[in-house]
């Protein structure tokens, strides 16, 4: 079963605790004299925060996410090791399948090998498994502090998640890729445009995945314990994002259904098909647009659900 491979497991989820934002506090607070306009009229307009400040806050939060995850070095090494073990096994499976049947799903053997190695790397970039940082803070009531900050929690968590993904690109993505390049004959992109398109696609995939996870976590405002919704998310995400097997292995009607009705291919299958150049550049660009559309839609949904959820918040234990 390629599943565990694809979705190894809630890995050593870095403990959240209160470190979120703690070292960025100084950046997010309306800071020193750099912005003279707000200085001169302090009480006139408390909101909205000027674009430059919010952009700076966003960058600072992303940087904090990056730094936070870069401190879990053991976990990174252990995770890379596991990705490589799974990569070796999945390569054995796909190479055998390709040997017996020619071009399964239209992929050559080399493309499938690339699919496996890029895929093992991407798993932790887009974070395909359980994430319940926000839900834990809802349960404990800490979320009240998030809501008091001058940055919308949705934007703050998204920034931190992009920072996390950035660190994952440098470690969890590059290490299995390097292993694959060293020991396997991988398919390398033939078109220059593939590289920037892959980069955009990975960023979009991270945002879609994040918005999905955030939405699941928001259910904590109603349920408090979100193990059920998380199971649901992971159960359908794994097979429908292309993590169990390339979606092209499915019957055509099922492919249409998954591509047209769900955001899941945008999380994993799209960047992988771009990396192995399974389609023409035009089709690849269209799939990136699809990702961006899903990201926009899901962020809208997050914002809306969050507005309703916040009105329900009762911080437990006073």
């Amino acid at each position: 079963m390629p599943s565990a491979a694809a979705c190894p497991r809630p890995g050593p989820e870095p403990e959240s605790g209160s470190d979120f934002g703690s070292d960025t506090r100084s950046d997010t607070e309306p800071d020193s004299g750099s912005d003279k306009n707000t200085r001169s009229a302090p009480d006139a307009r408390p909101a909205p925060i000027p674009f430059r400040d919010s952009a700076r806050a966003f960058a600072a939060l992303a940087g904090a996410g990056f730094r936070r995850h870069s401190t879990y070095r053991q976990a990174t090494v252990a995770g890379v090791f596991t990705n490589i073990v799974f990569g070796i096994m999945l390569c054995a499976v796909y190479v055998d399948v390709a040997g017996a049947s020619g071009r399964p799903g239209g992929y050559t053997t080399a493309q499938l090998v690339s699919y496996v190695w890029v895929g093992q790397g991407l798993l932790s970039v887009v974070c395909i498994w359980a994430w319940k940082e926000l839900a834990e803070r809802i349960r404990s009531g800490d979320v009240a502090a998030d809501l008091l900050r001058p940055v919308d929690p949705l934007a703050a968590y998204a920034a931190a998640d992009l920072g996390r993904a950035g660190y994952a690109v440098l470690t969890r993505l590059l290490a299995p890729l390097a292993f694959g390049l060293l020991f396997y004959s991988m398919y390398l992109p033939q078109r220059a445009v593939t590289y920037p398109m892959f980069a955009v696609s990975v960023a979009a995939a991270t945002l879609v995945s994040f918005a999905g996870r955030y939405l699941v976590n928001l259910s904590g405002f109603w349920l408090l314990d979100i193990r059920g919704p998380i199971s649901f998310w992971m159960l359908i995400l794994g097979p429908l994002c292309g993590g169990y097997f390339p979606l092209r292995f499915l019957p055509e009607w099922a492919q249409w259904l998954v591509w047209c009705a769900t955001p899941f291919p945008s999380v994993f299958q799209v960047p992988l098909d771009i990396a192995v150049e399974r389609t023409s550049s035009g089709v690849a660009a269209a799939t990136v647009l699809l990702q961006i559309a899903w990201a926009a839609l899901l962020f809208q949904a997050c914002a809306r659900v969050q507005r309703r959820a916040v009105t329900r918040l009762v911080v437990q234990g006073g």
């Binding site: 497991r9 890995g11 879990y72 252990a78 995770g79």
Partner: peptide, 12 residues
């Protein structure tokens, strides 16, 4: 922080 290391031998 070795959780995932063990995963290679259990889930793996």
């Amino acid at each position: 922080d070795s959780g995932e290391f063990a995963n290679a031998f259990t889930y793996g």
